[in-house]
Simulated scan of single mutants.
Amino acid sequence: MSQLRQCDASNLMDRMGKAPFVPTEIHVCTVTDKRGAFGILSLQTTEGRVDVALDRQTADAIINAINAIRSKLELVESR
């Protein structure tokens, strides 16, 4: 089960040793195999491509994470 956890932004770049990837393109597709359907989220970034396979539960978790980010960005932008 995918879970939404808060990250500690104050030390994020210290842990990674570099800045997070910056998406420059986003592509999506759906694939079906013998295990069922799943989605592919493909992010072209400044450092290369990142492909992520998503089942329904993981896609829902990512939507929740993006909504949490949006809420925080709206708070910052409204100041």
Rank of each mutant, 00 (worst) to 15 (best):
M1H: 11
S2I: 10
S2Y: 10
Q3S: 12
Q3H: 10
R5A: 11
R5M: 11
R5H: 12
R5Y: 14
R5N: 05
Q6V: 09
Q6I: 12
Q6M: 13
C7T: 15
D8Q: 05
D8N: 01
A9G: 15
A9M: 12
S10C: 11
L12D: 01
L12Q: 00
M13V: 15
M13T: 15
M13Q: 14
M13R: 13
M13L: 12
D14K: 06
R15M: 00
R15Q: 03
R15I: 07
R15F: 07
R15C: 02
K18F: 11
K18N: 10
A19M: 14
A19K: 08
A19P: 06
F21Q: 13
V22Y: 08
V22C: 12
P23Y: 02
P23R: 03
P23T: 03
T24C: 07
E25C: 08
E25A: 07
I26Q: 03
I26W: 05
H27S: 14
V28A: 11
C29H: 12
T30C: 12
T32M: 11
T32N: 10
D33L: 08
D33N: 01
D33C: 00
K34V: 15
R35H: 14
R35T: 15
G36I: 05
A37V: 09
F38D: 00
F38H: 14
F38L: 07
G39H: 01
G39Y: 06
G39Q: 01
I40S: 11
I40T: 09
S42G: 10
S42C: 13
L43W: 00
T46C: 09
T46D: 12
T46P: 06
T46F: 09
E47C: 11
E47F: 01
G48R: 01
R49N: 12
R49E: 13
R49I: 14
V50A: 04
V50P: 01
D51R: 09
D51I: 09
V52N: 04
V52M: 04
A53T: 10
L54Y: 02
L54A: 03
D55P: 05
R56W: 11
R56A: 15
Q57G: 09
Q57R: 14
Q57D: 15
T58F: 07
A59T: 02
A59R: 01
A59L: 04
A59C: 05
D60T: 07
A61W: 02
I62R: 06
I62Y: 05
I63S: 09
I63G: 07
N64T: 14
N64C: 14
N64K: 13
N64F: 14
A65K: 03
I66T: 06
I66Q: 05
A68G: 03
A68E: 08
I69M: 07
S71T: 11
L73N: 03
L73E: 04
L73Y: 03
L73V: 06
E74D: 12
E74F: 05
E74N: 05
L75H: 13
V76P: 04
V76H: 06
E77N: 12
E77C: 07
S78D: 02
S78A: 08
S78M: 09
S78I: 04
R79W: 09
R79V: 08
